[in-house]
Write a protein that binds this DNA or RNA. Structure first.
Lengths: 202, 202
DNA sequence: CCTGTCATGTACCAAATGGTACATTCTGCG
DNA sequence: CGCAGAATGTACCATTTGGTACATGACAGG
């Protein structure tokens, strides 16, 4: 029973360690000690240091995807509600450590680190597609949904960076609320009285 | 003349090196070789490895601030124009390497790395204050300006993360345009027909 | 010319690194 | 039981690491 499971337990423990102690400048031995094993075992299960980091990146990506999937249910077709729910979930203090790890891996990946690259390739595209599919169920055409999903993700990620850096929950909450307000309603259905945009004035 | 200048030249070269080759797992000796000096000299000028990273972080933060300051001029009081100009500037491919370095440092800092911490403390707050000051010249109250500046920065940063990861310029441009459209006009001047907010229950 | 200060090179160090070789235990299965 | 294969421990390795000690170079001002 230990076959794949031991490895998975280790992986979970390593992620937890990276979550609390950071992933920069961590040697196999330090990691091993922190998760209660030997650096020999990490090599055994993951092949190499980069192999370990690769699996960590994959797992983090998978968990992020799971986060987002959890938001799929109970949609009422109001995009502002979706972005609010997403923000509420993702800004939960209990997840802060994980989100920090996510961004640390992401930053590394941006600089060409091979081990963390899967994060770049799959994460965003997966989110967009999930969103497009979800939007289709309430009648939003795919191309429209895609661009709005993109914007919604950018807002939440940008504000999450802000929140993690400053800890200013009230400020970031307020900013998200401003955004959500402008997305209230079923705006994608063409005519419906005067639209949200305040084209007058200016 | 070499006094502070040699150090500054080195710092610039190191940043350039980090920009192209990444900052993860770089030893003093590798850095030194890349910038044409000895690891001994890096220690001499920056005290320690962390000292070097600290100065890199400070400099990157200073350059980011300078980026934003460059956007201050020629405002016409239209917030959508400001966010468009900001995006145009920040998404310039020529700056991509630098932005990647920025996010890599940022991610590190989020995980508690002391050397890169100044990025967290100063960068965002500086941007907010600059924006509030700028907005004041066109009559936007400070508290309103602050929350909108926050949102604007989040959108650009979030989309920048997207662009750097996917390279999808058309997609990110389109998302920004959707955002900007909803910000057209001088929306902060209170009464002007029905407001945007749709105070729904819950 | 001498002397002091900044800059740089050379040589070195103990410690830590990722990885490997080999022996050993554990465990499920025929 | 006995044995294969996975899991783990021990010991080791060459290399690299950040940092230091010390000598030397450049060069300004007295």
């Amino acid at each position: 029973m230990t076959g794949q499971s031991a490895r998975e337990r280790l992986l979970g423990a390593v992620i937890e360690h990276f979550t609390t102690d950071g992933l920069a400048d961590q040697s196999l031995r330090r990691i091993a000690e922190a998760v209660g094993t030997s650096h020999r075992m990490l090599l055994y299960h993951f092949g190499s240091r980069d192999g370990l980091l690769l699996d960590v990146a994959r797992e983090v990506e998978a968990r992020s995807k799971a986060e987002l999937a959890a938001l799929g249910g109970a949609g009422d077709g109001q995009t502002d509600e979706l972005v609010r729910r997403m923000w509420d979930y993702v800004s939960d203090p209990a997840l802060a450590g994980f989100e920090r790890l996510f961004f640390a891996l992401y930053g590394r990946a941006l600089q060409g680190d091979e081990a963390t690259e899967p994060l770049l390739r799959d994460d965003l595209e997966g989110w967009l597609q999930a969103n497009v599919a979800m939007a289709a169920t309430v009648g939003v055409p795919a191309d429209v949904a895609r661009v709005h999903a993109r914007l919604g993700l950018a807002v939440t990620r940008g504000l999450l960076l802000d929140l993690l850096a400053t800890g200013d929950r009230a400020g970031t909450d307020a900013a998200l609320e401003v955004f959500a307000r402008r997305y209230a309603g079923r705006w994608w259905e063409p005519a419906e009285g005067p639209t949200v945009t305040s084209d007058r004035a200016s």
